[in-house]
Write a protein that binds this DNA or RNA. Structure first.
Length: 861
RNA sequence: GCUCACGUGGCGGAAUGGCAGACGCGUACGGCUCAGGACCGUAUGGGGAAACCCGUGGAGGUUCGACUCCUCUCGUGAGCACCA
């Protein structure tokens, strides 16, 4: 098979320009204080979600967002911004560790190889990253500061008065360990036996591990936690000012799950006279607090339910019911999360024998235990209002409990109505609409000290420790059963060398095998858990500002310049996939707020504008996967069509945020376009060599050409600002189509085209620019030093414009008029039009709508 | 079940409430070629010989005018999922 003929010699000039960029470093952004820094230039920080360097290399999905940001970065540089556009590696993680377990090769080695592969692939696409700022989360110079930030969390607490993180020294209570933002707790965790580690809630999907899909069970363990719940309210409220997709904001709000309602105290009734147990009485009386978002339905509470794990269950259960309750709890405990949360299953539960007293009417209502109430949400106990809650209704019908309606719907049946209506059968709030009823009864409860307004969140504290080798060790030692922070001078804490990276299987981390490493001093041993993979990505965007700084996690002035600014500040544009909507993006915001409160960063939010790129599907319209065999490798595409065609096709496919299928035919089409650009300027001679097109001439473009030039400047500029790259490319195609037919090609418009196209196809335009500069003289500067062109509106106005003629809203004809025609002239001309005359003959003209420069609509009947 | 997003030619897609289908792919015909899976040109939503009619998932509505705004409905995709 003979080698496919290249439509233009990209295989020659693409590597050439990549080499030049490596040598000359035109994309290095100087920091304040650094040589070449120009304080008059505004900053623009444009960030990609850095990849995990897996063994399989890039697929075409990665470069989609990367190409979009690269176009904006190159464009913004030409607009005179000091552009921060960095790249790095999120390199801690399970695959490298599991590969190490299989082969014995140290994860650091695997990581180094994978990073080299990824970097080579990214360079082949011609991205304009400032590689001097490259970071790697597994580099001790990097994770030293990850550990340092952890120490700041450890040494802080959330002051509810100020609603801020503060140094632990401002805490005046007895036990600082109870309030630290990083704390140790014995908690029921998501234990994955297969992976040998615990997982965060966010990493568990349908009772299985997100990575690998292995079963996950509940198990109590001592773990490090981060108090993200303290920031729940700010994490919700401060979403408002961010330019993020509404869907991502909604996902975060939903994940944080704010519910406003009331806590209500129910006294447990003494159990004398119950089923002949005349002598039996509770030694102490108990109070059960429930949380409800519908305090207005308090009169409809006909029973109460405790979660099986609720601590009061044992105390209130009567002797008669004791065996039944014990059996039920045992049965529940043996179930997996998956089985417990199966919505399809019937409701189950058991009566405790005890009764609670409803504070509004002194009614005694039975207390049940059922697994449809979760210990982890609210107070782990509910008042059941079967008339107005689906789940309670199902349970009440199953166990024949009373159902009392207390909300009158606007229409229809009140039983089973869960919306807002008018309170009925509720003396204190009778006749009030739901909102007013809630307020009044809450006040009533507060006055009698049996309840209060309350807000609950679904968000749980962040389980921050993992039983893995390939992660950041904690800068913590244990002495006499108590944890203490290592001094900052001892950072970084590097992981020990190990032969065996396997999980121990007992829940003890692999680091526990390193006997010497663990012994920190006489009487003190190191923490053996490691941090989760998210740790490094919680602050990497800050490190990019100052990646070589060994004295501070980021220099103060540098942070203020890149992350501050007069506008909202932070990262100006952040592009990545939706898969990080509630994980990385929530964790990073949390860390950032802590650092902000402690005075280390200048903005309360890290990412001002967020854009999600859509998934690229295989040619078959299916999700790309090895098993389907529809994976497209960028290297193969670049071999055939070149990096510029690859970049342009990725952008031409459709809107950035949309899911769309790959098409090799489409790449070919874009490649043809780039070849036409090449042949506008170059021509192949008899010997098959490319030389300057003799049709190129230093002549003035005609009026039509000028119009297309300026229309293209306008369109491409606006489209890059709105990230509508597909239509920007369309317009440049229109430009090229307008010039390919001309016998003489004016030189100036070609220069403009090359600049406009440069962010999209940097190699081709650099090469052609160099050729033109050589031939037509000038300063022989690189195209990357050019300024972005401005359009002149005077070339866009037309002397004559075409006006659409409509009769009753349907297009019937068109006419050409002088662009300065008045509305009255347009109306007159339209009514005089022959077609219009025909169509309105015998009818009465009711109205004539004139849209200046666009159309005239004659309404007649 | 709930929340969100999206439904436009054979395909990817384009359209500040104002000519639906830009641009590209594909297809057809022609040119150039020893040749073409290269390149150049022309055509290309459907129906119809034509006048013309019909067309943006479906049904209503607002409007002189709706792919665009509103209501309902169907379908596809994503996320959440007993959160009281």
């Amino acid at each position: 098979m003979s080698e496919r003929r290249k439509p233009y010699p990209f295989d020659h000039f693409e590597p050439k320009w990549q080499r030049i960029w490596d040598e000359r470093q035109p994309f290095h952004a100087p920091n304040p204080g650094e040589r070449g820094f120009d304080p008059s230039r505004s900053k623009f920080y444009i960030l990609d979600m850095y990849p995990y360097p897996s063994g399989t290399g890039l697929h075409v999905g990665h470069p989609e967002g990367y190409t979009a940001t690269d176009i904006v970065a190159r464009y913004k540089r030409m607009r005179g911004f000091n552009v921060l556009h960095p790249m790095g590696w999120d390199a801690f993680g399970l695959p490298a560790e599991q590969y190490a377990i299989k082969t014995g090769q140290h994860p650091a080695v695997t990581t180094r190889e994978n990073v080299a592969k990824f970097k080579g692939q990214l360079k082949r696409i011609g991205f304009s990253y400032d590689w001097q700022r490259e970071i790697n989360t597994t580099d001790p110079r990097y994770f030293k500061w990850t550990q340092w930030i952890f120490l700041q969390l450890y040494k802080s607490w959330f002051n509810p008065e100020t609603q801020k993180a503060e140094p632990i020294s401002s805490y005046t209570g007895a036990e600082p360990d109870d309030v630290r933002l990083a704390y140790v707790a014995d908690v029921p965790v998501n234990w994955c036996p297969e992976l040998g580690t615990v997982l965060a809630n966010e990493e568990v999907i349908d009772g299985k591990s997100e990575v690998g899909g292995f079963p996950v069970v509940r198990r109590p363990m001592r773990q490090w936690m981060l108090r993200i719940t303290a920031f729940a309210e700010r994490l919700i409220d401060e979403l408002d000012g961010l330019e993020w997709p509404a869907g991502i904001k909604a996902l975060q709000r939903n994940w944080i799950g704010r519910s406003v309602g009331a806590e209500v105290d129910f006294e447990v009734a003494p159990v004398s006279n119950l089923r002949g147990e005349a002598d039996r009485k509770l030694e102490t009386c108990a109070t059960i607090t429930v949380f409800t978002t519908r305090p207005d339905t308090l009169y409809g509470a006909t029973y109460m339910v405790l979660a099986p794990e609720h601590p009061l269950v044992d105390r209130i259960t009567t002797d008669v019911q004791r065996d039944a309750v014990r059996d039920y709890r045992a049965a529940i405990a043996s179930k997996s999360d998956l089985e417990r949360t199966d919505l399809a299953k019937d409701k189950s539960g058991v009566f405790t024998g005890a009764f609670a007293v409803n504070p509004v009417n002194e009614e005694r209502i039975p207390i049940w235990v059922a697994d449809y109430v979760l210990i982890s949400y609210g107070t782990g106990a509910i008042m059941a209002v079967p008339a107005h809650d689906e789940r309670d209704l199902e349970f009440a019908r199953r166990f024949e409990l009373p159902i009392l309606d207390v909300v009158q719907p606007p229409s229809g049946d009140s039983i089973g109505f869960i919306g807002e209506g008018i309170a009925i059968n509720s003396p204190i709030i009778e006749g009030l609409p739901t909102e007013a009823a809630k307020e009044k009864i809450t006040t009533w409860l507060e006055e009698r000290r049996v309840g209060q307004k309350s807000i609950h969140y679904k968000l749980r504290d962040w389980l921050f420790s993992r039983q893995r080798y390939w992660g950041e060790p904690f800068p913590i030692v244990w002495r006499s059963g108590k944890h203490e922070a290592l001094p900052e001078s001892e950072l970084p804490v590097e992981p020990p060398q190990l032969e065996d990276f396997k999980p121990t299987g007992t829940g003890e981390p692999p680091l526990a095998r390193a006997r010497d490493w663990i012994r920190y001093s006489q009487g003190a041993t190191r923490e053996t858990n490691t941090m989760p993979q998210w740790a490094g990505s919680c602050w990497y965007y800050l490190r990019f500002c100052d990646s070589q700084n060994d004295a501070r996690f980021v220099g103060e002035d540098t942070e203020r310049y890149w992350m501050g600014g007069d506008k909202p500040g932070g990262v100006d544009l952040y592009v990545g996939g939706t898969e990080h909507a509630v994980l990385h993006l929530l964790y990073a915001r949390f860390w950032h707020k802590v650092l902000f409160d402690l005075g280390y960063v200048s903005t309360p939010e890290p990412f001002q504008r967020l854009v999600n790129q859509g998934i690229i599907l295989g040619e078959d319209g299916q999700k790309m996967s090895k098993s389907r065999g529809n994976v497209v490798n960028p290297d193969d595409v670049i071999d055939l069509y070149g990096a510029d065609a690859f970049r342009c096709y990725e952008m031409f496919m459709g809107p950035l945020e949309q899911m769309k299928p790959w098409s090799m035919k489409g790449v070919e089409g874009v490649s043809r376009f780039l070849a036409r650009v090449w042949r506008l300027i170059m021509i192949e001679n008899q010997a098959g060599e490319w030389e300057l097109n003799p049709a190129l001439a230093d002549i003035a473009p005609n009026k039509a050409q000028l119009k297309v030039v300026h229309a293209t400047i306008k369109k491409v500029t606006e489209d890059i600002e709105t990230l509508s790259f597909n239509t920007a490319i369309s317009q440049m195609m229109v430009f090229v189509n307008a010039f390919t037919t001309s016998d003489v090609v004016p030189f100036a418009p070609m220069r403009t085209l090359l600049v406009l196209l440069n962010p999209f196809a940097p190699h081709l335009t650099s090469e052609l620019w160099e050729t033109l500069e050589t031939r037509f003289g000038g300063a022989r500067s690189a195209i990357t030093d050019e300024s972005w062109p401005a359009y002149d509106p005077q070339y866009l106005v037309e002397d004559e414009i075409e006006i659409i003629l409509q009769v009753n809203g349907k297009v019937r004809d068109r006419m050409t008029v002088a662009s300065g025609a008045t509305d009255a002239e347009l109306e007159g001309a339209a009514l005089a039009n022959e077609r219009v005359q025909q169509l309105i003959a015998g009818k009465t003209v009711r109205k004539v709508v004139v849209v200046p420069k666009k159309l005239v609509n004659v309404v007649a009947n």
